[in-house]
């Protein structure tokens, strides 16, 4: 899973071949590429870039969902920067991402390692880990509201029993985002586990056996063989899960409905609130545009950093 930003010269266009042939080939290739790309390209333009252009236009307009939009210049953006609630949402979103992404990735990776050793039972265990992915949000909300209710939660009872402070999860401002992150880790684990296990299974045993012959300890094998060989998977998962958790919305909606306190709000929650409850599509679009830029920057950084640590099998 190499995300290379470099276009590598391929053998086909090696300079040893006559130029004319190459250029004809290139034209043929371009035609082939267009044909292969055409369905997705059509979808990209009609169902994504079109609506996106409209949203971008709205970011610089005043529009309440009805009637005509009027030009707003940068006022939507200044409105956002002046709004302390947006700053709070941005902090909440980053905090959620910081807790959830490494949390789910480390747990998924560890469980994938353990499950490798579980033999025939692997697929049975894996079903258990995947169950949260298919559990309906209603059931998720019901159960977690129970687990987060300090009066009746068995978690809190257990915490108190071992002398730890039992938090009021969804009411204590400093615990709301961590609570969401816990649910996010629980629900995201199954998917990442499957991805990591697929990656682990594709690592040749020969590498590990060679390492073993060299007298590597288990830790050294993990550090010098497994992790480097899994690095493309790690990069893919970290890119997609950061994008996903920056866009977290449904947990807040499921647990708090439409009137979440400031301490619980994330950026996409604000976007939806502003657009569909406050009829402020201009500011909502502007905020989405900013989120997009931030994600673009974060992903760009990840791509730039990959050269340092991502190992390509190819």
């Amino acid at each position: 899973m190499a995300i290379d930003t470099q276009v590598r010269p391929s053998a086909r266009t090696a300079p040893s071949r006559p130029w004319r042939k190459v250029s004809r080939r290139r034209r043929k290739d371009t035609i082939a590429a267009v044909i292969f790309l055409s369905p997705q390209l059509f979808g990209l333009i009609v169902f994504m870039l079109g609506p996106l252009g409209f949203a971008l236009y709205l970011a610089f307009s005043h529009w309440d969902g009805f009637g005509t939009a009027t030009f707003a210049g940068l006022s939507n953006f200044t409105e956002l920067f002046d709004n302390p609630r947006i700053q709070r949402s941005a902090i909440n979103t980053v905090w959620f991402t910081v807790l959830q992404v490494p949390g789910v990735m480390v747990t998924a990776f560890l469980f994938a390692l353990f499950m490798q050793k579980a033999g025939k039972m692997t697929s049975v265990y894996r079903l258990g880990f995947v169950a949260p992915v298919v559990t309906s949000s209603v059931a998720v909300a019901t159960i977690w509201l129970y687990l987060f209710n300090p009066d009746i939660s068995p978690v809190n009872t257990a915490l108190k029993a071992i002398g730890l402070p039992a938090p009021n999860w969804l009411q204590d401002p400093s615990f709301i985002i961590p609570s969401f992150a816990i649910v996010g880790i629980w629900q995201g684990l199954g998917y990442q586990l499957v991805m990591f296990m697929a990656g682990l299974q594709s690592i040749g045993a020969s590498y590990l056996e060679a390492a073993e012959l060299d007298g590597c300890s288990a830790w050294q094998k993990l550090r010098h063989v497994t992790v480097p060989l899994l690095s493309p998977t790690i990069l893919f998962l970290s890119i997609t899960s950061i994008i996903g958790s920056f866009q977290v919305f449904d947990y807040i909606y499921v647990f708090m409905d439409t009137n979440a306190p400031d301490e619980a709000r994330t950026i996409v929650y604000e976007i939806v609130q502003m657009a569909f409850r406050e009829f402020n599509f201009g500011a909502a679009s502007a905020l989405a545009f900013l989120l997009f830029l931030v994600l673009l920057g974060v992903t760009g950084l990840q791509m730039a950093a990959q050269k340092r640590w991502v190992h390509y099998a190819e």
């Binding site: 996106l52 994008i243 920056f246 919305f249 996409v268 989405a288 997009f292």
Partner: peptide, 18 residues
């Protein structure tokens, strides 16, 4: 890159034009 970038767009926003 354009394909990748579209993953970063919150979907709720494009629902009305769609």
């Amino acid at each position: 890159m354009v394909f990748l970038a579209t993953m970063m767009v919150p979907g709720q926003l494009t629902i009305i034009p769609l």
